[in-house]
Amino acid sequence: MEGKSYQRLPRVKIREMRDDYMKFELRDTDASVANALRRVMIAEVPTVAIDLVEIEINSSVLNDEFIAHRLGLIPLTSDRAMSMRFSRDCDACDGDGQCEFCSVEFHLRAKCHSDQTLDVTSKDLLSSDHTVVPVDFSDSAGMESSEQKGIIIVKLRRGQELRLRAIARKGIGKDHAKWSPAATVTFMYEPDIRINEELMDMLTLDEKKAWVESSPTKVFDFDPKTEKVMVVDPEAYTYDDEVIKKAEAMGKPGLVDIIAKEDSFIFTVESTGAVKASQLLLNAIEILKQKLDAVRLSEDTVEADDQFGELGAHMRGG
C-alpha cells in the first residue's frame, strides 16, 4: 500500500451493561462510523416479529386490524433471528413464509368467563418455538415488580373471546418499526471541559455559585471547602452554552472552554428486549461488516478501483 493509510483502530470501552441497556465509549473514530453503527442498530439488525395474523374468533371491542397491529408491535426474543432466513428468500417454503426456517407460529386463545375484565397479554401468546417467545420483562428488570403480566393486547369482558393464529417472521426495522430491536440508540460527542482557573479565582463565592447554577444539568459543582469549581460530570453537559453565556454575562469570557472531542462518542443503547443490548451491538457490527463486504466485493467496486485509486484500496480494507 503506497500512500497514506486512512486506517484507524477504534476502541470500545463498555461502561455499563444490563440486558436491555448499555452504555459504551467509542473512541478513535469519526461521526460517520458512529452514526453508521447507530443507523444499523435501529434499522438493520433483524428480529422476529408477528407479521401475519389469522383471526378465528374476535368478539372483543378492538377490531381485527387493531389487534394484528398490536400483536406485531410485541417484541419477541430474537436471538435466533441472525441465523433465520427472510421468508422472501427462503427456499424451504414456496415463498408463503410458513416453514420452520423462516417463521414461528403462535396461538392465542382467550375467553372471559367471569364478570371481571380479562386482560389478554403477551403471555397468552403460545409459541411453537421456545426460543422465540414474547419478551418477558419481569426477570430482566432488577426489581421484582409485584406481578408482571406482560404486554396487554386487549381486554375482554364476560362472553368475549379471542382466538387467533399468528406467524412471526424475520425482518428489519427499515421495513417496519416492529422489527427494530432498538428502543433508543443515541450517541453524543464527549465534551472536553476546561475551566480557566485564573479567571475562576477572580470570581466571588456568590458568582461562582451562580455560575454553577446556570447550567441546567449538573455538570459543575462548587466545593465549599476548597472554594473551587469542579467539573463533576462532563457528560451531563448538553452543549447548551448556558455556562458560556453566563460567563460572558458576568464579564468573564473564556472562563470555561468547552469543545466536543470529534473522535470519541458515548453511546447509549436501549433494547426492546428482542435481543440483549450487548448482542444488539455485536449484531450491528456484524451487519455493518457484511454491508461493507458487499460494497467491497461488488463488481462496481472493482471497476471503481481505478477511478478512486488509493481510496479504492482503502475501501477494500487496505
Partner: peptide
C-alpha cells in the same frame, strides 16, 4: 427513523 434527527437523550 434513522434519518430523523435525534437528541442525546435519544
Amino acid at each position: 427513523q434513522e434519518d430523523f434527527p435525534f437528541s442525546e437523550r435519544g
